[in-house]
Design a protein around this nucleic acid. Sequence first.
DNA 1: ATATTGAATATTGGATCCAATCTGGTTTAT
DNA 2: ATAAACCAGATTGGATCCAATATTCAATAT
Lengths: 219, 219
Amino acid sequence: MKLKSMDISATASASTIVFNALRKAIIEGQLEEGEPLRQDEIARLFNTSRIPVREAISRLQEQGLVRTQRYKGAVVAGLSPKETAEIFDLRALVEPEIIRDAVPRMSKELLAEAREKCAAFSSATDPMAYGDLNRDFHETLYSASELKFFQEIADNAIDRVERQIRAQLVMSNGMERAGREHFGILEACENGDADLASKLTRDHIQGAKASLLKHLKQD
Amino acid sequence: MKLKSMDISATASASTIVFNALRKAIIEGQLEEGEPLRQDEIARLFNTSRIPVREAISRLQEQGLVRTQRYKGAVVAGLSPKETAEIFDLRALVEPEIIRDAVPRMSKELLAEAREKCAAFSSATDPMAYGDLNRDFHETLYSASELKFFQEIADNAIDRVERQIRAQLVMSNGMERAGREHFGILEACENGDADLASKLTRDHIQGAKASLLKHLKQD
DNA sequence: ATATTGAATATTGGATCCAATCTGGTTTAT
DNA sequence: ATAAACCAGATTGGATCCAATATTCAATAT
């Protein structure tokens, strides 16, 4: 008798677990900019040795989420206002292309799911959840696209400014404006208007950039 | 007596040396697609232990240059024709923006250097050097741009298709056409015409993509 | 002959130990 | 008092060793 193939979900390696946990902690702002990542301390936290921690850190460095100096260790990477602006410009270039590719591939089910997430975002009351709900909505729409490298770029770019996005959402009008723009993007998707969805996505990102930069004085 | 601060050029760590060497070997095609990277073998090659090798491999994985499977190791990543096409589309989106940003920042010296490299490319006779000379020309122009994240994206994208670019250059007309287009781009830069330089860069990339895809049957 | 089992080998993932470098406070010379 | 020299702890980079898993191939059963 033959058994089903079962796929034991491949319990991730320690280095991957540490990598994901640190990445999450960084983009959610639980670890502040400039805060040093002590290998020993992290290893104890995860009940492992420093080896998988070092692998995780080197991957985070490759993603630009931490900076390391030889014999001095890694610190959470911060962004200058100029760098933040550049990341938003990159997003404003790439993400409209993703959604343009995605629109003709969106199923009824996906659009229904997106509508739910759009509503969940607009009715959210816990500021801690704003960031996740926002990202959840956008990624749902993007997931219909087959442009996986574009999505990699967008994911990484969003990672790098996730903290600023969260800050922007709790600013006055942040949630209200984002919610309105989300509905507009969603509607364009439902109407199959890829060009409009693309344009609204670009406006959404550039609006967030402008709103954010107003609050960042120095350079 | 005090010594000059001397900056011993920070003799890179072993893991960085291995990372750079492997990256170079992969993008130059010395390691073929699907070829497994044996930690032990690489460690012996560089007279180190497997620890820095593993760090190097995890960084290469993060860059998409290798794929790894748990307990099975890493293999050099290959690209399907569809993936190759997507990378070229990404380049065609990002690199025109880089050169648009770069043109108004190009000094006389930089333009002279670019002209030399353009000529060096056109008069090259060694097919082994085509790839380096091509990249050298483009990176010289791009280096005037202040968009460092855009450049990161472009660098990584070029890394991933470097082998195909080299193949395309040795194909009939490859060098001749590229050389002609390089001169066009350079001229636009010298004339300070950022829009034209941007457009020609996009055409250059899309032309390379088209020429390449004609030779890739399956998907 | 073919397919399955199982042991030997190869290879990766991780832990522990050592060496190299950094950091901070203390000492010492002027 | 100030600044250079220096010593001790902290921290990172790397080597060696062990455990977990994969792969290969011979032995066996059908």
